[in-house]
Simulated scan of single mutants.
Amino acid sequence: MSGTTAGTPLRALVVTVVHHPQDSRIRHREISALLAAGWQVTYLAPFVAHDLAVPAPADGLTCRDLPRAAGRDRLAAARAARAAVRRLAPDHDVVLVHDPELVPAVAGLGLRHLVWDVHEDPAGALVVKDWLPAPLRRPVAAAWRGAERLVERRHPLLLAEHAYAGRFRREHTVVPNAVVVPETVPPAGGARLVHVGNLTTARGSEAMVEVARRAHAGSDGAITLEVVGPARDEASRAAMEAGVAEGIVVWHGFQPAERAMATIDGALAGLALLRDLPNYRGSMPTKVVEYLAHGVPAVTTPLPLARELVEESGGGLVVPFEDVQAAADAVLRLWRTPEEAAAMGRRGRELVRERYDWAKGGAAFVAALTEVAAARSPRR
């Protein structure tokens, strides 16, 4: 699909103050799809806060730094984002925001061409946000539900999950968390577990280390856990550091998407041990799809969408929530039967290629933004 109108390249302003600048959905799928379609993109993200240099302009992409919103320190990032968007939005056909707090932060600027990419359920996520006092979590969540319906009357939305549609009254384009499916991958096997993604207690970071500990002992020291991703809370950091000290965990921290995905190849299994929390119940853990896309079976807790994918494809094993022994037993089963692990990986990969390949989702994403630009751009 052409990224031009009347010979002029379409321009997108993409903004986040919460996500890592190398976030897979934002940078490596959506922005890459826009650039491939001929768009020009200005990307505002917290590069410096993540110890990254701001990339020089190249190939249609211009990057600019914003402060990072984290914990209770969010006001400065919101103010900086508002000022930057106020200045840059008139020169862009679409303003695409990826954080819930950016929607109220830019309210009143008259941005008819703003699109909110809904990655998660913010109201559901509040139950685990320790930066918000506990007595305020339910009232703020209820207020946010009302705000969402107000936002959808004013702005187009993109939804990362079909399940999110139930929160809204209008129909919105769904751009699922599809992945780039590699052409070829090695078979699953060996004795290396992997986890790719942010580390929090809610995402099972402490449980993963305990699973690795028990699987390591049950395999006479063969099984280890390789982790790619930053720790987002102190408990997760402590768990990872303890696992490294014991020699059962190799922790790489954050890595660019290409290196992170390469870590998955040829592993025994990928761990996705998220807890049973409201924010996760309507979402597909992207890591589960990534493991299967690389031909590696997933060991996952029974969140509805993850369970459905793994059971339908036969691409892994489902274990009870917060049952580290069951997860360790599942890992040991795969280690003892490497042919089963390889077969699971092949089956999961086939289904992901059919349903979750970004080669298909990227076109729908670009088409949705092109439609917004045609109807709402201040440049047209």
Rank of each mutant, 00 (worst) to 15 (best):
M1D: 12
S2C: 01
T4P: 03
P9V: 00
V15W: 03
V17N: 11
V18M: 09
H19G: 05
D23L: 08
I26P: 08
S32N: 12
G38W: 03
W39T: 05
V41A: 11
T42V: 10
F47M: 05
V48D: 12
A53S: 14
P55F: 01
P57C: 02
D59V: 06
L66S: 02
R68S: 10
R74G: 00
H98L: 03
P100M: 07
E101R: 15
V115E: 00
V115S: 01
W116M: 00
W116G: 03
D117C: 04
V118K: 00
A123M: 06
K129Y: 02
L136H: 11
L136R: 12
R137I: 05
P139W: 02
P139H: 03
V140S: 10
A142D: 14
A142R: 15
R145C: 00
G146V: 07
L150Y: 13
R154G: 10
L157F: 15
E161K: 10
R169G: 10
H172L: 03
V174T: 13
V175E: 01
P176Q: 10
V180Y: 10
P182C: 06
E183Y: 04
E183D: 15
G189K: 05
G189L: 01
R192Q: 12
L193T: 08
V194P: 09
H195Q: 12
S205Q: 01
E210H: 11
E210Q: 14
V211D: 03
V228M: 03
G229E: 11
G229A: 09
E234Q: 14
A235P: 07
A239T: 00
M240V: 05
E241C: 04
G247A: 02
A262H: 06
A262D: 13
T263W: 01
A269P: 04
L271I: 09
A272K: 10
A272T: 12
L273R: 07
L274T: 08
R275E: 12
L277I: 13
P285Q: 05
L292G: 01
L292M: 15
G295Q: 07
V296T: 04
P304A: 03
R307Y: 04
E308Q: 15
V310T: 09
E311H: 06
S313T: 07
P320M: 08
D323T: 04
L334Q: 13
L334C: 10
L334E: 11
T337M: 11
E339W: 12
M344V: 04
L351H: 11
R353T: 11
V366R: 12
T370A: 14
A373G: 12
A374H: 15
S377T: 08
R379Q: 01
R379N: 03
